[in-house]
Design a binder for these strands. Structure first.
Length: 216
DNA sequence: CTGGAATCTCCGTTACATCA
DNA sequence: CTGATGTAACGGAGATTCCA
């Protein structure tokens, strides 16, 4: 179907390489549609091609500079701009199109890599925070455990509190618990001091720990 | 409206040049 | 010489546009 012999609209066919001998090029088809003469590109098939047209050549620094400038302005390539660039750089328009295509691919890859680095950095920072918080929770649990043990001890042996040298005993004694200040807040026993309402214990109160456990 | 042809972009791959 | 890397070029597929 791409064969010109099957296309009644095709009148003339010529290789663009005749105009750009150094460039890789496609074949152009000149067709008449609606009385208007149009040039249309047809893709060159080059399977097993030994053709010198497929020889790869490096673009010059000057060509690359202009292409890069153009790419910075706009990553998309309008037909007019492509033609203009091509003639400016003495390249086949298809070469310009391919360069833009490859350049967009490189840009995309670079952006993905940047995003990956950003995510990695963010992840490292979060992990550091997680470790710090886990350590803090560990310390607090240890403190709580020690305090509860001491409370238990004082509950079982209230008389020890007076003579005890423990920091807790020196700050919180049965006398303290019986002080007007504690009674003012409706606190009668040590259990009241550490009382956690059932609804809180089952939800909000534990959320702090659950939050930490989320990172596990 | 529809089908076919042309052309575009994206994607994956290949081929070639260059360098360590 | 060889393997790794960068990139020009290719070909297929899907989407879009144009026209008979």
């Amino acid at each position: 179907m791409m064969d010109s012999s099957l296309n009644p609209k095709t009148e003339t066919m010529f290789p663009l390489s005749s105009f750009y001998p150094d460039a890789v090029s496609d074949t152009f088809v000149v067709s008449q549609q609606g009385g208007e003469v149009k040039q249309r590109r047809r893709r060159r098939k080059n399977k097993g091609g030994e053709s010198s047209l497929s020889k790869k050549r490096k673009l010059t620094a000057e060509q690359l500079l202009l292409l890069e400038e153009s790419f910075v302005n706009d990553q998309k390539l309008e037909t007019d701009r492509k033609e203009e660039l091509a003639s400016q750089l003495n390249l086949d328009p298809r070469q310009v199109a391919i360069w833009f295509q490859n350049r967009r691919a490189r840009w995309k890859t670079k952006k993905i890599e940047e995003k990956l680095t950003q995510i990695q950095t963010s992840h490292d920072s979060i992990m550091l925070d997680k470790l710090r918080l886990e350590y803090e929770v560990l310390m607090l649990r240890q403190e709580l455990s020690e305090a509860q043990a001491r409370i238990q001890e004082l509950t079982e042996h209230p008389n020890d509190a007076i003579s005890s040298n423990s920091p807790l005993a020196s700050t919180v004694s049965m006398e303290t618990a019986n002080s007007p200040l504690f009674r003012e807040f409706g606190v009668d026993t040590y259990d009241d001091i550490f009382y956690v309402p059932p609804e809180s214990a089952s939800s909000d109160y534990n959320d702090g720990f659950d939050y930490v456990l989320l990172f596990d």
